[in-house]
C-alpha cells in the first residue's frame, strides 16, 4: 500500500475518534481548552509511536515464533502500561520541560483504548514495520486533529447561549456527534 494513502486513511478517513470511536474518554475529558487538548494529543502521539514500535518487536520476536498470537491483547496492555510508566520516569529525570508539558497526560493514556487499538490494528492489517510506523503516527495525529477541533468548538460553545438543560456534557456530546457525521463525508475518499 502506498504510504501516503495509508497516512491519509489513518489520519482522516478512518479517524480513530470519529470513525472508530476509540479514545472517547480523553476526547471528552481533556477537551475543554485548546491548550490542554493539544498537550493531550501530543502525548498520545508520543505514546502510540513508542508502544507500536515495542509491540511490533514483541509480536514478531516472541509471540509469533511461539504461536501465542492469542495473548496479544493482554501482553500489549502489560507492555504499554509499563512503557508509559517508564517513559514518565525517564522524562521526569532527563527532560523536566517536556515532563511538565506531557507529564499530567501520560498516566491518563496508560490504559487508553486508542493506544491499544492502534497497535492491534498494526498487527491485524499485517503491516510491515515501516507501514506500522506510518500508521502509528497518522492514527494519533488524527486524534490530535479531532481533540483540538473539538476543544475549539467547546470553547465557542462555552460562551454561547446554551439552554440550561443542555449545558455541559449534553451539548458537548451533540457537538461530538455532529463532528463525527461531518467526518463521515471522508469515508468514500480514494487516493
Amino acid at each position: 500500500m502506498n504510504l501516503f494513502s495509508l497516512f491519509i486513511t489513518s489520519f482522516i478517513v478512518n479517524n480513530i475518534i470519529f470513525s472508530q470511536f476509540l479514545g472517547i474518554c480523553p476526547f471528552l475529558g481533556v477537551s475543554k481548552k485548546i491548550e490542554t487538548a493539544a498537550g493531550m494529543g501530543i502525548a498520545v502521539i508520543f505514546v502510540i509511536v513508542l508502544s507500536s514500535i515495542i509491540t511490533y518487536i514483541v509480536q514478531a520476536a516472541i509471540l509469533v515464533p511461539l504461536g501465542l498470537e492469542y495473548l496479544q491483547t493482554i501482553v500489549f496492555i502489560l507492555i504499554i502500561a509499563a512503557l508509559v510508566q517508564f517513559v514518565e520516569m525517564f522524562l521526569k529525570k532527563s527532560s523536566p520541560g517536556l515532563y511538565k508539558a506531557l507529564g499530567i497526560y501520560l498516566p491518563l493514556i496508560t490504559t487508553n483504548c486508542a493506544v491499544l487499538g492502534a497497535v492491534l490494528i498494526n498487527i491485524q492489517n499485517e503491516y510491515n514495520f515501516i507501514e506500522a510506523l506510518v500508521n502509528s503516527i497518522a492514527t494519533p495525529a488524527g486524534f490530535l486533529l479531532a481533540i483540538v477541533l473539538f476543544a475549539g468548538v467547546r470553547e465557542k460553545v462555552d460562551t454561547a447561549d446554551v439552554p440550561v438543560a443542555l449545558k455541559g456534557s449534553p451539548i458537548a456530546l451533540i457537538a461530538a456527534g455532529l463532528m463525527s457525521i461531518a467526518f463521515l463525508g471522508f469515508s468514500g475518499l480514494q487516493i
Binding site: L63, L66, L68, L71, I74, V75, L78, I79, A82, F86
Partner: peptide, 12 residues
C-alpha cells in the same frame, strides 16, 4: 511468556 514479560517490566 506472560509471566516473563511481567517480571521483566517490573524489574525494569
Amino acid at each position: 511468556v506472560l509471566g516473563g514479560i511481567g517480571i521483566i517490566c517490573g524489574v525494569l
